[in-house]
Design a binder for these strands. Sequence first.
DNA 1: ATTTAATGATACCTTTAGGGGTTATTTAAA
DNA 2: TTTAAATAACCCCTAAAGGTATCATTAAAT
Lengths: 141, 141
Amino acid sequence: MNFTKTTEYGLRIMSYMSLDNSKLYTANDLFNNLQIPFRYLRKQLNFLSKQGLLVSIQGKQGGYQIAKPLHEITLLNIVEATDEVIPENKCFFGFHDCPLTEKCSMHDKWGDVRDATLEILRTTTLFDLNKEKCSINLSLK
Amino acid sequence: MNFTKTTEYGLRIMSYMSLDNSKLYTANDLFNNLQIPFRYLRKQLNFLSKQGLLVSIQGKQGGYQIAKPLHEITLLNIVEATDEVIPENKCFFGFHDCPLTEKCSMHDKWGDVRDATLEILRTTTLFDLNKEKCSINLSLK
DNA sequence: ATTTAATGATACCTTTAGGGGTTATTTAAA
DNA sequence: TTTAAATAACCCCTAAAGGTATCATTAAAT
């Protein structure tokens, strides 16, 4: 009942980099500021680049940068890139042939929660995160 | 962004057995009606018994039965028994030292979703599931 | 008493998420 | 043109979740 570490790291990386999306961040820089194991961070930066969320620049003075305008990247984009997203019609009890047309009490209740979750992920962009004061800086040691 | 299989199975088992909580269900019976691998099902029935959610009766004519009145078992009880409990104040970005007193936009938004999720799990009992028509039967092949 | 139909206990196997190590490749700067 | 600072690629290790196999124990029915 959580995001995977990979998704969590993905959200953390992208949100941190969105604080200044014109800047080129090195893996070392991110390692020093985020609480992510170095090798795993490297692997994931690579992955996020291949997914088109980051642009990577090789060589000396290289680094990573957010690939698109902040308002074009939603949290759902990040979650989808790093994990399987909850299918829209997933049965609460995990029956793969639970017909959505047949309503059980959990279908409705759970559907509401799932929809609310997805709605937030879908409508919140990296730009939105920084509109208001965000504690990302504060939350780092 | 899902329950674990173990939690999903737990919910499935308990909800199915709540259709008739006076009945003694054998592992074989449950295997024939739920879509859970037999050996794993056996292990989990054992586990749920130790957790006090089921009562097991050994020997010929034995089986499993829900341990308490249906209205005394919430979905959260089942989730907590089979998975790590969802922390109340978990930072969306997974920073373990993210201070809740400092508000970032995600803290509020995500907090609302998390609260709604927990509220449903906490307030829905096995009794509630069967108040309304439930498609559990229909969802089985 | 013996058989039989049930659960209990335990150890093992498999897959995958998370993490680590090493060597190549790129490119700006000396 | 060599060096240094960066990313890329590849392979391996570990722990935990999910799943399997086997044998022991219980207790009703014969």
